[in-house]
């Protein structure tokens, strides 16, 4: 495989007296889906926020395309090609799909020296991109509020890819979705990966991770419990690592192995 597109080296992040990340190292290659697993409070959110420029690491180094990085704010990260699709906060329900798609990146057309929003271009591109992702819109002016949760995630992913994301961070994109919608989002992730984009897929659902992941890193209490390659690890082992072993075994026993 080629060089990693982004390397997180020994990242530590402290909030006052709380150590949220105690030296986490992860590297992500272009065209792979790297799953980041962990239970609530494991430090997943803090870690991806560090990666996307929201937090500055207390110590440690981020290397992006071979260069050490120092993001001042998330806009720097977006400009560099690191896009984050947030679980809830990605789309504005009252606005049309095309207005959402180009939010913050509005195409403009000059008329008499003044810049105007190029609605024709925005509508055309939105319809094309949505069709490529397998979503049939009634029209580009359809409000995002009428889309299902899975479709919204797909629009957000398509948007990030359209605007040149090299690293796509997906923060629990499937956690609130039904079976069918989850399958659609996972299929979208697969399409994106095949375009050579590095996908960082955050989840606490082992089955979703196993469906599309190439490599798996498990976080627990602010530390990595190692990275495994697809085929070298079973879902059960991943599940155990996430929960921290023992207690889970007891729990599973009492639940008859259904978790």
């Amino acid at each position: 495989m080629a060089d990693p597109i982004i390397q997180m080296k020994e990242i530590q992040k402290h909030f006052g007296s709380v150590i949220a990340l105690a030296g986490v190292s992860v590297d992500v290659f272009p065209g792979e889906c790297h799953c980041l697993l962990g239970d609530n409070g494991a430090g997943k959110s803090t870690f991806i926020k560090t990666m996307s420029g929201v937090h500055k690491p207390t110590s440690g180094e981020i290397v992006f395309e071979g260069q050490p990085l120092d993001f001042a704010d998330p806009r720097d990260a977006i400009a560099a090609g690191i896009a984050t699709v947030h679980q809830h906060l990605a789309m504005i329900p009252l606005m049309s799909v095309s207005r959402n798609f180009f939010m913050g990146n509005e195409p403009v057309r000059k008329i008499a020296g003044l810049s105007f929003f190029d609605h024709d271009y925005a509508n055309r591109v939105t319809m094309e991109e949505m069709r490529n992702m397998g979503i049939n819109l009634r029209g580009p002016d359809q409000a995002v509020g009428t889309l299902s949760g899975g479709e919204r995630q797909t629009v957000a992913i398509a948007r990030a890819v359209h605007f040149g994301a090299k690293v796509l961070i997906l923060d629990e994109p499937t956690s609130a979705l039904g079976v069918r919608q989850t399958a659609n989002v996972l299929a979208t992730i697969d399409k994106v990966r095949k375009q050579g984009i590095a996908v960082v897929f955050i989840t606490h659902n082992v089955r979703h991770a196993m469906a599309v992941g190439d490599r798996f890193t498990v976080l627990n209490r602010g530390q990595t419990l190692g990275t495994a390659v697809r085929g070298e690890i079973t879902p059960e082992e991943l599940q155990d690592m996430m929960a921290g072993g023992q207690e889970m075994v007891q729990l599973e026993g009492s639940l008859g192995g259904t978790v």
Binding site: H86, L89, I92, P93, M95, R99, M103, G104, E106
Partner: peptide
């Protein structure tokens, strides 16, 4: 578009 976005969901707009 930013006016709509700021009022629709300020957090989502900031993320974009």
């Amino acid at each position: 578009n930013w006016i709509f976005a700021a009022g629709g969901d300020a957090e989502a707009a900031r993320n974009s």
